[in-house]
Design a binder for these strands. Structure first.
Lengths: 220, 220
DNA sequence: GATGCCCCTACCCGGACGGATAGGGGCCCC
DNA sequence: GGGGCCCCTATCCGTCCGGGTAGGGGCATC
């Protein structure tokens, strides 16, 4: 099952970049290996779990870059990353993931990772990124990092009635109930009712919290 | 003054990456050229203004990457970038700048730039980035992109006293005066005083507006 | 037709808020 | 020493807000 060849290579050419790939997804692992070795300047070692990766590093293997799958046996998300980083030699470590969100990427980079690779990258970009990181640079796909954390489909907006949304918009503009009433051409007591109801729906206890929650959700 | 050698090279080896460097800063231009050509895989053409760069491209020169200084004669910030992008051949264009802020970088990348290079990068990173971009990838320094848009000197924060800032932070969390008082271990009337004063200073007329203004300014 | 949801209006009350005014103490700088 | 700024405390008042309760009308679904 595992393609762990070359795990005992000790001789090491100065111009060859050694990369450890730890991923339980056979296809990705093999593809990456083939592409990298096809470059001629890479030497890859592949394992399928975090524990195997850790064992190799503890045995004194040297790598220019360690690629860890964010979700593989023994990895336990960030914990594995931190453990690997704490090992002797402080290898350059990058995270590869098929599912992780942007803020996971941010956390990882913040913690000093060499990079973050979503599995949506093309093989070509993947190879470029690996080379880039092995050279000592920090990489993450820019479009991935720039995308709004918005995505959560606004579960908030969907629970509110149209009128409540209009009122909420008024709240996000710092308006008083009276102003909102005037703008919507309804009586103030009605506004107060909508305000109260939407508090319950979105979990706010006053208008400031409601406004902030709405802004955070990307509304208005 | 200009190091415009090689501007007329037409023969083009398949494995050599041609880069056009347009920057009115001689030192940077020469350094970059020396480092890149030292790599052996780069062929560089240097000019010192936007108009010269445009002339070369219009004359049919082919480049794998065009580097444009964000502030050089004729560049006119984003305008030059867009003009260059609109030219025949749609070269890969990257921006290099010593002063531009993060949101300029975001705009440029959004507009489809091959990358953004602050002049604070090391020569080594610069070369790596140029190679990376010439390979077709998009680059920007991650730490630069991840930094908070905080910097703009917060004219707001500077007008507030330390205590008022603490109170304002409470407001941005949707807290009541009483809660803020408890957290800061002062009496509620004091909180109300600070609240009232900071309203005047930042131009808010109620706590929701204050909280929103603070958030917009990037505080907290 | 009954039920449910949304929208509107209205009244109540206690508490919170916005604004003004009036102090005192500490600190620095002129 | 005086003036300025910041921080603290306090009282007063009118308004707004948050929460509750109680309706009526429209519209869809069951």
């Amino acid at each position: 099952m595992m393609a762990q060849q070359a795990a005992h290579v000790v001789t090491r050419s100065a111009n060859v970049l050694r990369v450890l790939i730890a991923d339980d997804h056979d296809l990705l692992r093999d593809t990456l290996q083939i592409f990298l070795e096809g470059e001629g300047t890479f030497e890859t070692v592949c394992v399928a779990s975090y524990s195997e990766a850790e064992a190799l590093v503890k045995a004194g293997e040297q790598f220019d870059l360690v690629l860890l799958d964010y979700s593989m046996p023994g990895m336990n998300a960030l914990e594995g990353f931190n453990k690997m980083r704490a090992l002797e030699g402080s290898h350059r470590v990058a995270i590869i993931s098929g599912t992780a969100s942007r803020d996971v990427a941010e956390q990882v980079l913040e913690a000093g990772a060499a990079g973050f690779l979503p599995k949506t990258l093309s093989a070509k970009s993947l190879v470029n990124a690996v080379r880039f990181m092995a050279m000592g640079e920090q990489y993450a796909p820019l479009d991935f990092m720039r995308q709004e954390e918005a995505a959560p489909s606004h579960p908030m907006a969907e629970r509110l009635s149209p009128r409540e949304l209009e009122v909420l918009e008024g709240l996000t503009q710092g308006k008083s109930n009276k102003e909102i009433a005037r703008d919507l051409d309804i009586r103030e007591p009605t506004v107060k009712l909508h305000v109260k109801t939407l508090y319950r729906k979105i979990g706010a206890s006053n208008r400031t919290q409601a406004a902030l929650l709405a802004k955070e959700a990307g509304l208005f």
